[in-house]
Design a protein around this nucleic acid. Structure first.
Length: 149
DNA sequence: GCCAACGTTGGC
DNA sequence: GCCAACGTTGGC
């Protein structure tokens, strides 16, 4: 899951412990949260729009089928006037803090890892804020962070 | 700040 | 349903 640390980063998640992943307004990303994620799924917490971008920490899906309340909030930048309460358009998940990695694993380093060649994150033009990763990719990134802390 | 990539919007 | 225009994302 990608996030801009200036807005909400791993330190913010560490502080609040649990956060509804609201504000996602892309159907593909919503479908991943709504249809693919399960309680207990491990999450790579990725910091974007900073130098350097990279995986900063770990989180976990702790609730699924969460109605994104910002869609009904007229004052929110994520307000969606077309969405109805009886059939909400935007469904997300709650994520809980697991840990801040001992070091940020930069995007550049991820690009250098052969085992990650197929990760959507590394594809050109990939902007999705929620993306799948395999268990193997997850383990390798965590291992890289611990190997050279 | 630039710009490539890509999603969304809206005219037709 | 097509597609050009536009807006956003996000690395650099």
């Amino acid at each position: 899951m990608k996030t801009e640390p200036d807005t909400f980063g791993i330190d913010d998640l560490a502080r609040v412990k649990l956060e509804p992943w609201s504000g996602v307004r892309n159907f593909q990303a919503r479908n991943l949260m709504r249809d693919e994620m399960r309680v207990g799924d491990e999450v790579l917490f990725y910091h974007s729009s900073v130098a350097p971008p990279g995986v900063a920490g770990l989180a976990r899906v702790c609730r699924t089928g969460v109605v994104d309340q910002t869609q009904f909030d007229a004052a929110s930048p994520y307000h969606d006037p077309k969405s109805r309460r009886e059939a909400p358009t935007w469904i997300c998940v709650d994520v809980e803090f697991v840990e801040k990695l001992p070091r940020l694993v930069p995007l550049e380093e991820l690009r250098g890892m052969a085992a990650l060649a197929d990760m959507p994150l590394l594809r050109r033009g990939m902007r999705l804020s929620v993306q799948p990763a395999t268990a193997d990719q997850y383990k390798r990134i965590v291992a890289a962070a611990r190997r050279r802390a």
